[in-house]
Structures are given as C-alpha cells and as structure tokens.
Design a protein around this nucleic acid. Structure first.
Lengths: 269, 269
DNA sequence: ACCAATGGTTCATATAATGAACCGATGCAG
DNA sequence: CTGCATCGGTTCATTATATGAACCATTGGT
C-alpha cells in the first residue's frame, strides 16, 4: 500500500458521527504511530483536504473537498438525478434509502436519505461497500461485469455470522438476485440490518451502481418486503432514466415476474 | 514536498474546462515522468479520488470527492451560506463573483457565480489563490492574521507586469484595503482582469475568507467600481451572517466611510 | 507499412517514509 | 503544588519505498 493510499485512507475515519478527530485518536484508529500520522495529516492539510479546528486542534475535512465535489458533478453529474427518487423511496418504504456508484470494482456511497417514520432506523455511514456482504454489492456482482465476482471473491471479510464467505454462498445470493432482479442481504454486513437493492444503469449501457433500502431486520415482514421491492424497482427505473440509461430487458423481465407472481397480464410495457 | 502532496496535487490540474486528463497529458502538466504519475494516479484511483473513463482511459475526479464534500458540509456548513449572496452579487454587478475560504495560510476557491449580462466575462478556475496577486489575497493579508503577510512575502511570483513583487507594493495595496475595507487588484494575476474583494468572517471571529468580483478591466468605470463596492459590502455582510460571524467594527467603519464619502449622516447604524 | 502518439511496466538506484524516543504544555487528583 | 497521564508536535538513525530511464504493446493517422 502506497503512502498516498495510507494518507488518504485517514479520511475514511471521518463520519457524520465522528466529524472531528484529534491526532492521538487518529493514531489509535489508523493503528499507526504519531509521527507518521502527523506527517500524513499535515500533508493533507497542505492540500486542503483536512484542516484543524483552531480551538481544539482536532482535524476535520477541509475546503478542498468542496471544490473536488463540484468538479466531479461537473464532469459526471450523478447526484442531481438521484436525490428525488431517493427521497421518494425512503418515504414509500419508511426505511433508509441509499445509492452507490460503481468505480472500477468498488462501490462508493453516493447519497443517503433516511426516513423519519420510525424512531429506529439504519444509519449508513460507510464510504466503500463490500461487494459480497451488502445487497448493493450483490447487485453489482449479479448485474455487472464478470470481474466484479473476482473482486468480491478476493476480499471476503467476515463481518457477522451471516456474512457469505464462500464462493458458493456468494453465487447463491447472486443467482437469487438475477432471478428476481432484486438482491438481498440479511445481516451480512451489520447484524440486525436487512438490505435489498436493485441495479441502476447509465448512458454507457453498463451497470452504474445500485439503489438500496436498509431496514431494521426485526421490522421485515412479507408485506414490507413487497413494498420495498415495488418501491426499489420504481426508484431504479427513475434513476436509470435520469442518468440517461436503460434497464436491460432481462432485468425488467425479472422484476415483472416477481412483482406480479400469479397473473402476468400487465407484465408487458 | 511529500508524495502525498505531489499525488493529490495532480487533482489541481482538473478544472471545468479540462475535466478529464490522460496519462501523458498529466505528465506534461505535472512535469513528472510517466511511471511516477501513473503510480500516483492508481493510488488516487484506489481511494476513489479519481476514476478512469472506461472508454477513453482518461482520468477524472472520482466518487470519493462527493462523500468528502458531504462530510465537510455536515461538519462545517459553508457553501449553503454563500450561494444566494453570490448570485445576488453577480446579478447586481453584472460580473463574475466568487468566494474563497482561508485554510491555514492559503486561500481556497469555494464557489463561483458568473453573470450572464455580458458576453465576455472572467472565468475563475483556480484552486488556490496567490495572496499577493489577487484582490481576495490582499483582503486576507489586510484583515487576517499577521502571518499571512509573511506567507504572501514568501511566495511573490510575478504573474503579469503589474503583479506586486516587492514588500512595498504589497503593503501599499494592503494599506489601501484597510483604509477602504475593499481590496483591489488590477491585472495582478491575470492580464485584463480587474478584481475587487471584501473580507468575510465566520463564527470563530477570525477572518474566514473573501468575497470578490472579477471584471474585464476595460469595462471598469468609476460608476461600475462604486456598484461593485456597494454590492461587495452587502454580500460580505450576508455571507458573514450566514456563517455565524460578525464583521469587525473597524471594517464596518471603513466600508461606511467610502460608501458615503461626503456626508456621513447615516454612517452610524 | 510506417511513424508518432498513447497507456502501462520493469528494475537498479537513491530518496523519502518510518517509528521509538523525546519535548513541552495542559489538565486533573491527591 | 506535586506527580501522573495525556495531549500535539519533533528528532534522527534505519529502512522501506518512491523514482525515472528504458522498455512493451496498442492505437490511430498518413
């Protein structure tokens, strides 16, 4: 791992729950010594990616982040086409909704919307989603390029007792996702969190990311699952349209099958 | 300069005008060899700060930028408090308006708004503003901590024939800014660009940055200058209020003096 | 069929990253 | 006010890591 990755990796320890981090705390989080951590932080500070709270001396994300994000949206506009469908999804399901984008073979969180219906809800606060342990990741493997399966297999960390850690377990989840058009992960990443996700596409025609709903597992009923499924399909269609893509016929067919299991009169369209 | 700074420094070559950059072009821009540039780019790619356009192989800003910006906003909400006053400023003056924030002793561009009144306008496309050669920088030196003057003197690049490159020239501009509350830079950074700036403050009570108007120099008249000055003061007050700061009395006094030069009946308030 | 680009890779060399130990400041308990 | 713990920051010999000239393999233009 290069110095650059190590240094920038420090930024991953920031979250909305932990927006400012002191030097010593950084050393503990990053499991590195003080001198190295300090130099990395001052380097990041020099380029504006972090700055120090002048009163507490704690470090926080710096202003350069804003400029980079502006450039990103100017280059690859994604965020705008996502916020409205995401809000609707969170509303309709009453759960936390989020969208991730595929970059190379990793899935980056793009936007989150938490519903206020329940007092308990899932907080998504992670930068890079593991491919094998999240519903979004399973969607990526199921509907993305074959290399994504290799990438998933190359990094099968066990997060909970339910994390799929064998190729067979992964393939089973992937097969189910391909059959229904919706991937599922029950406590695979975090215990007590039930995730469902659908693939989204952009103008390139290739898989671009995933839209997902994260529910408190104890709240999942057959009815809730059907609501999630319906709302997810709608959100995936909208985001795909906003990004200038089209949902592949095979995915639309899978969605149609599971949404109208018995009669299939309106399966066309 | 550490590797981290070099690698992240590559990101500064992106701009709205040049949103994607190939490997060879990067080597030329960064004046570094291919192998090094390539390794830096792959490191940045690994952390999601850049990604490759799958078809052209050119590099562009990656999705991690969005997450960092989101965290920045959650930690230090700035941008929201700037956009509306900036649009008003651009509207009232008919020129390009922009805001920069101070981080340590460098001035980072935060937001830009271009007026559509004229077909020719100034395009601001720079990440870090030089302290000695821009109106915003002069404002920072004039109203910020004394160390900023040292930082300015330590890096007096000559950009044009009009760039102040002596301590005397700098101090003269700074004195004028302190007297009027508005700094000026005529073609100091880019030929033909006339800049005016006012200081802005945040909740810490210290200088937080500057708001500026960049005009095509040939369009500057006494009337235009007065319009800019008035609109700048209003924008600086609004942004400062939005950031939870207060304008120091001495700056308010300087503004009042130059805005009502002859009578001073309503100087109080 | 050629040339001039491009993106990417190799490997000996030299430079830059590393971390244990250290410093001074601050805060707290007895 | 003394002693202890923790904080942010610094030093310097050791060593790992970054470097870049030279090298491929492709691509696109003429």
């Amino acid at each position: 791992m290069s110095v650059v990755e190590k240094a920038i990796g420090l930024l991953n320890h920031f979250s909305t729950a932990r927006p400012e981090i002191g030097l010593s705390e950084f050393c503990r989080l990053a499991r590195r010594d003080k001198a190295t951590t300090y130099r990395h932080l001052t380097a990041l500070e020099a380029v504006g990616l972090v700055e120090q709270n002048p009163t507490t001396r704690a470090y926080r994300i710096g202003p350069a982040a804003l400029r980079l994000a502006e450039l990103r949206e100017a280059t690859v506009p994604r965020r705008d086409g996502v916020l409205q469908p995401l809000a609707t999804l969170a509303d309709r399901t009453g759960e936390s909704a989020h969208v991730s984008v595929l970059s190379g073979s990793s899935l980056h969180s793009l936007a989150v919307h938490e519903s206020t219906r329940h007092s308990t809800r899932v907080v998504i606060d992670v930068a890079i989603l593991p491919l094998h342990a999240t519903a979004s990741g399973i969607s990526a493997v199921a509907f993305g390029a074959p290399e994504l399966r290799d990438a998933a297999l190359a990094n099968m960390n066990r997060f909970t007792d339910f994390t799929p850690t064998t190729p067979e377990a992964l393939d089973a989840a992937v097969a189910e996702a391909r059959r229904t058009g919706i991937s599922t992960s029950d406590s695979g990443f975090e215990a007590g969190v039930h995730g469902m996700a659908a693939p989204i596409y952009d103008q390139s025609g290739a898989l671009a990311g995933a839209v997902a709903v994260a529910s408190v597992a104890t709240r999942m009923t057959a009815e809730q699952e059907f609501t999630n499924r319906t709302a997810l399909v709608e959100a995936a269609r909208q985001i795909t349209r906003n990004w200038g893509g089209t949902v592949p016929a095979v995915v639309e067919a899978a969605w149609a099958d599971t949404l109208t299991p018995m009669p299939r009169e309106d399966a066309a369209r």
